[in-house]
């Protein structure tokens, strides 16, 4: 990660040197150096300011995500927990289905949604689709009271991590389907926490980049959740890797 900065700095230094050398060459120096040289020179003189600025932007981005995942306490107070959860899901551009209904409420790409969901007070949610949203650990607090949540899809959520998975024990009695495919931050440490979900029937763990030896992990998951059907696609089970694993297991067995 540091490489681009180092190269930028080097580039800046070089441009500064060039600048100086040009000044030495042309003593009259009527024409100022080109714009990009001046910009780079300016930036190199302000290296720590740029660094500070970058850290501020990342902090602001984090704050923005936290704000989106804020606790909807006000809505809960006036409309109840179910409406608050529904509103939270819709404002994150997710979708859901109430218990006993076939209609899905979901937000479109621009974030607009049908306010008709307000008509269903005191109706818990049954299916929630949070795919490709920025839901995180803090936002999960809004869904805590959904005791009849049966299906949850978290496909491709960049903020879902192991701590998030460990908090899913809240739905341990009701949750049957879970989709956590394409989540970049999930590792084996979080998958171990899924053992608390006793009712799980279907689990999708496709294309998790954080898992080092997917073949072994999937076997272990199947062992841990015997009644659960586990979908795992998108992994490159090439022969050599499996051979290596087999050998390792064999060696351990010999030991």
């Amino acid at each position: 990660m540091s490489a681009p900065f180092v190269s930028l700095r080097r580039c800046c230094q070089r441009s500064a040197l060039l600048n100086i050398s040009r000044r030495l060459w042309s003593s009259d120096s009527a024409s100022p150096p080109p714009l990009h040289t001046r910009v780079l020179l300016y930036l190199t003189q302000r290296f720590y300011d740029v660094e500070m600025f970058l850290s501020w932007t990342s902090r602001l981005r984090r704050k923005g995500i936290q704000k989106k995942n804020a606790y909807y306490g006000f809505t809960q107070k006036y409309y109840g927990t179910d409406i608050a959860a529904a509103y939270y899901i819709l404002s994150l551009k997710g979708g859901f289905r109430y218990v006993g209904q076939s209609e899905w409420f979901s937000a479109d790409k621009r974030g607009t949604f049908n306010w008709g969901f307000l008509d269903h007070r005191e109706t818990p949610l049954e299916e929630v689709n949070m795919s490709y949203t920025v839901i995180n650990y803090r936002g999960l607090e809004n869904l805590v009271d959904q005791k009849s949540l049966r299906s949850l899809s978290l496909r491709g959520c960049p903020q879902v991590d192991d701590w998030f998975l460990s908090r899913l024990h809240l739905f341990q009695d009701s949750l049957q389907e879970l989709d956590i495919s394409h989540c970049p931050h999930i590792t084996i440490g979080g998958l171990a926490a899924l053992s608390n979900l006793r009712g799980l029937r279907r689990l999708d763990v496709s294309s998790l980049p954080g898992i080092s030896s997917p073949g072994l992990v999937i076997i272990l998951l199947e062992e841990m959740l015997p009644q659960c059907k586990i979908t795992a696609t998108g992994y490159n089970h090439n022969l050599r890797q499996e051979e290596g694993e087999m050998k390792e297991e064999h060696m351990q067995a010999q030991r």
Partner: peptide
């Protein structure tokens, strides 16, 4: 830390 890899604690949520 800016320009460094994020910290990965390898936390195992097994309880």
């Amino acid at each position: 830390v800016l320009n460094e890899d994020p910290v990965d604690l390898q936390f195992n949520h097994s309880g």
